[in-house]
Each structure stands twice: as C-alpha cells, then as structure tokens.
C-alpha cells in the first residue's frame, strides 16, 4: 500500500494542499448559503447577548459601533496589505524556483521555509518588535505576518507547477509555443487549483494572525479581545473573540467560492 501524503496543511485553515472535488447541486447550495446563514445567526446571537447586558463605562469604551468598526477596518486593511505582499512575493518566487535553471535551489528554499514554519507567529511578531525598535509598529506586524504566510502560497505554487506533466509541456513546445507562452497558457492554468488552495490557506491564516497585532499595539480586532482580558470583562472578551472568529470563517467561505469560480473549466 502506498503511503498517502499528509492530507493536512501544518498551519491553520481548512484548505487542504489539494483542491477538493467540485461540490454538486444541493451540496453546493448548502455550502454556499449555509455558512453565511450560520455566521449571521452567530452575529445576531452576539448582538442579543450584548444587548441584554447593562454595559458599564469600561465595557462601553470597547463595545460601541465606532470603536468596533474602526478596529474591523484596521483588521481588514492590515490583512489586505499582508495578502497582497504575500502574493507579490510568493507566486513569482514559486515560478522562478520551478524554472529549469533554478530548480536545484527549490529543495533548500522549501526546507528553510518548513523550519521557519515551526516558529510561532507571536514569536516572530514579538522578536521583530523588540529587535527593530525603530521600525513602525505596522511595518513590524506586516513584515512578520507576511513572512509567515509566504510558505503555503510558495509551496502550493511549486507543487502545482511541478505536477504539470512533462508530456503536456513537451507537446505545447512542439506546437511552437515559447517558454513564456507555455508558462502562461499551459503551466499556470493547470497549476491554478493547487495554487488557489494555498492562497486560501494563507488568507485565513493572515486574518487570524492579524488578531495578534494587538500585542505590539498595531490595532485590529485583537484589541477588543485584549481589552476584555485586561479589564476582566467577559462581554467584551466574547464580543472580540466572536468577531475575529466570524471574520476568519467568512473569509474562508468567500475564498472557497472564489476557488470554485476561478478553477479553470475542464479540470
């Protein structure tokens, strides 16, 4: 019996290394509509739970629309910057490392990235914060979180490109396509499903990791959780935690749909 490959990614997110099968009719509807319905129900329950509380002054400082919205926007803004940087670094790097001349570097780079993955995110954020005191807090948070999210995208880009059959590339070359054309019109489209799975993992990972930016004062929804812990107010703590969890699950849901839509037809 062949040893099955590890079906799980070592880092968060439900996205596996490989794309799942395209869900069929009723299942797909349930998956597309079920998740947002459940998340909205959770938010409604949270609203009722907070509404039933007589908030004291400390609780009101965190639990007002203006504060919560500002932290949500900060959270989304940081996440967006991080994800754009991850894609801009990891995809070209993955393509470069699978080109014939550079292939011998791909092993060491992946090994280094795998060891790097063992570093806890909070450790990286704190280390950067105490080592590069002169950097701005947002630069520190973004750099640390980007470094952490590169691996899933890099690895899946390389795996996706590597699994393209040499025979397919050969026939494309035989049809008169140049190297660049083969990359753009054959290899990348065939690698897209695996790449998308990695991008989805990185997205969910990023939204979750940005919640740790609060520890170095870089804002985001983690602030609400920290306020709840430091002021010993359960209602604040629960609100912050639920908002972060709902945000991550919503991003995962959205990325799942994008994954299905962008997957090239015929694969």
């Amino acid at each position: 019996m062949a040893i099955a490959p590890a079906p799980t990614e070592p880092a968060g997110g439900t996205g596996a290394a490989g794309p799942g099968p395209r869900p069929g009719g009723a299942r797909r509807l349930l998956r597309y509509a079920g998740a947002p319905a459940a998340l909205l129900a959770v938010l409604a329950a949270l609203y009722l739970y907070v509404g039933a509380h007589d908030l004291d002054r400390i609780e009101r400082r965190s639990l007002n629309a203006e504060y919560l919205l500002s932290r949500t926007w900060q959270h989304l803004g940081l996440s967006l910057v991080v994800v754009v940087l991850i894609l801009a670094i990891a995809v070209p790097l993955g393509v470069a490392l699978t080109r014939p001349g550079a292939r011998r570097f791909s092993g060491p780079v992946l090994a280094l990235a795998n060891v790097g993955q063992a570093i806890p995110t909070i450790g990286l954020i704190v280390l950067f914060a105490v080592a590069f005191v002169s950097w701005g807090i947002h630069t520190i948070a973004i750099t640390a979180i980007v470094l952490y999210g590169i691996l899933p995208v890099l690895r899946n880009t390389m795996v996706g490109l590597d699994q393209v059959s040499p025979a397919v590339i050969e026939s494309a070359r035989g049809m008169g396509l140049g190297r660049a054309q083969v990359l753009w019109r054959v290899e990348l489209p065939l690698a897209v499903p695996v790449m998308l799975a990695g991008i989805r993992t990185a997205l969910v990972l990023t939204v979750g990791t940005v919640a740790l930016a609060t520890f170095i004062g870089a804002g985001g929804l983690g602030d609400v959780i920290s306020n709840g812990i430091s002021s010993n107010r359960t209602v604040v703590l629960v609100t912050g935690s639920v908002l972060v969890a709902v945000l991550a699950l919503a991003v995962d849901w959205l990325a799942g749909i994008v994954e299905d839509v962008l997957r090239p037809r015929g694969i």
């Binding site: 968060g12 997110g13 439900t14 969910v204 939204v207 979750g208 990791t209 919640a211 740790l212 609060t214 983690g222 959780i225 709840g228 812990i229 703590l237 629960v238 912050g240 935690s241 639920v242 972060v244 969890a245 991550a248 699950l249 995962d252």
Partner: peptide, 12 residues
Amino acid sequence: FLTIPSYALFGL
C-alpha cells in the same frame, strides 16, 4: 475549529 484564529478561540 481549525479555522477559528487561536487568540479568538483562547478568548472564547
């Protein structure tokens, strides 16, 4: 469970 960010799950 795995999708819920760690700080949020610890908080909850």
